[in-house]
Simulated assay, not measured.
Amino acid sequence: MTQAHGGGWIPVRKDFVDPATRCHARGASRRHHGFPDGRAYILRDAAGHEYPFGEDCARAALAQPGLLGLVPDYTERDMVPRAAWPEPAPGPRRRDPAQARAAEHAAAIRYLVLRMEKVAAVPRVQPTVRFPALEDVYAQYQRSGDIAPAQVRRILAIERSPSTPPRLRAINLLDVYTAHVKLQRLIAASTSVDNIRFLRSLHDWLARHLVLTAGQLAAAGIAMHPQAFTSAGIWGPEAEPPAAAGRFQSGTLF
């Protein structure tokens, strides 16, 4: 197993990677495996460099494998096969205060990075995504790689504020980021000019409106979380998400 220089690995996040990316660790075969599902854990070494790891390899690299469950997960709204779902908990348990704080810390970082970096960097995305009030916190996070408890509370208060539009809340931004990644992959893999044109028009729509209908997802062939783009309020007050249509013609947005 590859080790960090002069110290251990630090888990940073779970994120999408190019499926052709190779794991930084070597498995039993002494080969670097790939990421066919396009998801990886990102670990940082003592020199500050980040590398992708598969889950088993990441657990083997960490002195405390349980820390993987505390990192921001940017792949949460991807389609995960039912066979890979975790076993349901035996019953409701009171969350440990330390675990609750860790979960809020990860949620705050994820929202900060989604709003100021990942979704903000989507080409032609609407300018309301990047929030000026978070610029100072984001700059500090870029320098240190962490945020203080007071900043956690501030970020979560912004995300939960009634003045924050539903399309700019965490779950919908996760949906936008996931759909963006999937569309970019489809565009890169397509050899049809008409299909590329359609996918790009869909991507532009996503960037402008921060939503896609079930029909649009189906037309593009995008598999996502079954509740993608169904967060409360994103289609308007008391509005239901548009239902998926039967069959779509290429180039049709609705």
Score class of each variant (00 low, 15 high):
L199C: 13
L217Y: 03
N172L: 04
R153Y: 03
R143E: 14
H180K: 04
V129C: 04
Q216M: 13
R160K: 14
R167Y: 04
L217K: 02
L212R: 00
R130L: 10
L156E: 09
I158V: 09
H225T: 03
A170H: 11
L210A: 11
P166D: 03
R130T: 08
A157C: 03
N195W: 10
R200H: 11
M224E: 05
G221R: 04
I155E: 00
A219Q: 05
I171G: 04
S192A: 11
H180L: 09
R153C: 01
R185S: 13
P149L: 06
V211S: 08
R160Q: 14
S144T: 15
P132M: 04
P166V: 05
Q227P: 12
L206D: 02
H209W: 06
A220Q: 03
A219K: 07
D194K: 15
L173W: 02
A218P: 05
A214E: 15
P162I: 05
D175Y: 04
G221K: 04
I222T: 03
V129Y: 00
L134R: 00
R154A: 12
R185V: 07
L210C: 12
I222P: 02
L134S: 02
S201I: 09
I158P: 00
L174H: 08
A220N: 02
I187C: 10
D175M: 03
L186G: 11
R169T: 04
Q151S: 14
Q216T: 08
H209D: 11
A220W: 01
S190M: 12
R153I: 00
P132K: 01
A170E: 09
G145V: 12
R197S: 14
V137C: 10
W205N: 06
H203S: 14
A228P: 14
L156Q: 13
L134C: 12
N172A: 09
R130H: 06
H225S: 07
